[in-house]
Amino acid sequence: MINLPVDYIGVVFANSRRRITPEQAAALKSVLLEWSVNERPKLAGVFVNPTFHELEHVMEIVSLDVIQLHGQESAEFCEQVKKRWNANVFKAVSFPQDDTGQDADHVALQRLDAYTGFVDAILLDTFDPLYGGGSGKTFAWERIPAYAEWAAKNDVAMFVAGGLQADNVQHLIQTYRPYGVDVSSGVETEGLKDITKITTFVERVKQA
């Protein structure tokens, strides 16, 4: 992937078939030094309800640029993380698959207000009961505008994840104009990252 025009690369520390050790993440980060300096993507670590001790352990071994939280982490926890490390904090907002849930959105957006100032981005994803995210399924995209409005008002970036692949990402971007998109299973073949799918996905994103 060296010098592909991507902005972030994620490494998973949550309970998942993609989970790696902090030592493996440190080795992967060393590869980023092979990229052109101005094009080096930021390294994001993906966690689900981590303890502060777990974050301390990981950050001692690999200095992450982004701490991405996919569980039920509180605003107070995000505040602690933000104050402790010089890293961006991304907070995932998970939706049940195909649930339109406008009433729930009103409540969720009110709760998000507490995170203002403590998160640099929100990431809209499809809820997975086992892992929190990474389901490979889309959610009801018509829910996006309310969150986009909240993000713009609070100067927070908005990413969209959940079931994205080369065939649908252009439609998403052209319709909803998120700050960024997040992909994992959509660029895999038989559970492994596929460089052909990754390249095609990135091309479609840039074209959009």
Rank of each mutant, 00 (worst) to 15 (best):
Q97A: 11
I61W: 03
V119K: 02
H70Q: 12
R40V: 01
V58F: 11
E73R: 09
D167A: 08
H57Y: 09
G186A: 07
G186R: 06
K42E: 10
E39Q: 15
V66S: 02
T196F: 13
K137H: 15
K197Y: 12
G101H: 14
P41D: 05
G117A: 05
Q165M: 06
F139L: 01
K153Y: 10
L130R: 05
H171K: 12
V205I: 05
M1D: 15
R143Y: 03
E149Y: 10
V37Q: 03
V6Q: 07
A25E: 02
P145K: 09
A208R: 04
G45T: 03
I195P: 13
E56A: 06
G45S: 10
A151I: 07
F90G: 01
E56M: 12
D65I: 10
F127G: 00
L4E: 14
A152F: 11
W150E: 09
Y8W: 13
S16H: 09
T21S: 14
I173M: 06
Q207T: 09
A114T: 07
A44D: 05
Y176E: 15
R40G: 01
S30L: 09
T175E: 02
V31G: 03
E34V: 02
K91N: 03
H171F: 12
E23W: 08
V31N: 04
I20K: 13
Y147P: 07
L33Y: 06
I67D: 01
V6K: 04
V11Y: 14
R204T: 04
H70D: 02
E23Y: 13
A104F: 11
K206G: 04
L172I: 09
Q80L: 11
I122Y: 02
P22K: 14
T200S: 08
Y179G: 02
A14Y: 14
V12A: 06
D194A: 11
W35N: 00
D125M: 05
F13T: 01
E60K: 07
E79D: 12
N49R: 06
H171D: 14
G133M: 04
L172N: 10
R177K: 14
F159D: 06
D128I: 03
W35R: 00
I173S: 10
G133Q: 02
D182L: 04
L33D: 06
R84I: 06
Q170F: 04
G132N: 00
V93A: 03
D155P: 08
E39I: 08
A75G: 02
D65H: 04
T196C: 12
L64D: 00
A26N: 11
F118W: 13
M1Y: 15
E79T: 12
V6A: 08
R40A: 03
Q174I: 08
G117R: 06
L112H: 00
K153R: 15
P96S: 01
A75M: 03
P178F: 11
L130C: 12
T196Y: 14
S74W: 01
A25L: 10
A14N: 09
E34G: 08
V89E: 12
R111C: 03
L43E: 04
D125K: 01
V6I: 14
D167T: 13
A44F: 08
F201E: 07
H53T: 13
I195G: 10
F118A: 11
A208E: 04
L64G: 01
K193I: 15
Q80I: 10
L172W: 12
N168P: 05
G45I: 04
D120V: 12
V62N: 02
R17F: 14
S135E: 00
